[in-house]
Nucleic acid binder design. Structure first.
Lengths: 143, 143
DNA sequence: AGATTTTACCCCACTTTTCCCCACTTTTAC
DNA sequence: GTAAAAGTGGGGAAAAGTGGGGTAAAATCT
């Protein structure tokens, strides 16, 4: 289970250090994908396989499915951690997540989220604005 | 499994470098075909054989099938990678995909898609317009 | 058929990117 | 406070991407 929030930087070679706490669970490599809300996800190989198998089974005859398959696999990358526990983030994913320098990396149960620090700050601010609504929703689920 | 998105160029001799990550899976040669959505597909020899067998088995008595068979095989090409890992893209396929100079090559599970950069940009823009539908779909398959 | 032009393909050269490795700084643990 | 681990930066070799020359094969023309 991935837990906790970390701040880190991407360097000029587009490498990001995976927080040390997450490395053992990933076992030297991971799948980096496009996530919701303009952030990126890191999945374990196993979890990715499960998703990929479901998605690959969609009918190619449907244009929306084709787009979806293209978007999903085209924005997924197998990343091997280097000697220092870093992964390289490819251009298309950096652009999607507005990644330039400062990052926030946060564990989210079965995946790790990677945010541009700025995007995350904006997002958190926006969340505050609608916080009462959010609390109401939690109440529904008795949390 | 083909993954990731790459940008590349076609040169004056109509050659395109196949992204290095895809070469091992193709093993020196591949089948280049006309894809959906005004892009081209690269299949492994094995996957192409399977498809070709299915398509060849369609009843010739049906005019629509005859046309499809003609179109499919007429726009398929066996491509051998040269010493630098490039394939030559024939004229009919270049025209179909509006290929002139800049390309986007994207892995889509069992095939590789080759797009003219301009066509892909237009396509992606159109996709953004209907993004909510798309996001819902992703949500279905996310874990 | 022979000559000429075009196309294909092998090879070499240059530029850019990637990746491995080492070094330094900062944080964590004891 | 000291040692170890984590995070960050960068040099340099290797690989990937790109362009182009030269020769052989194919197509076209006369």
């Amino acid at each position: 289970m991935f837990l906790g929030t970390y701040t880190n930087k991407i360097d000029d070679k587009n490498r990001m250090a995976v927080p040390a706490k997450f490395r053992d669970q990933l076992g030297g490599k991971c799948m980096l994908t496009k996530g919701f809300d303009e952030c990126l996800y890191i999945y374990t190989m196993e979890d990715f396989e499960v998703m990929a198998a479901k998605i690959a089974a969609l009918p190619q005859s449907d244009a929306d499915f084709r787009e979806f398959i293209r978007d999903f696999f085209g924005n997924s990358e197998l990343c091997e951690l280097d000697g220092q526990g870093r992964i390289k983030i490819p251009q298309n994913l950096r652009e999607y997540a507005h990644i330039t320098k400062d990052l926030v990396t946060t564990g989210a149960m079965n995946k790790v989220e990677i945010w541009s620090a700025e995007t995350k700050a904006d997002f958190d601010l926006a969340k505050k604005m609608k916080d009462s609504k959010f609390t109401d929703k939690l109440r529904e689920f008795s949390i």
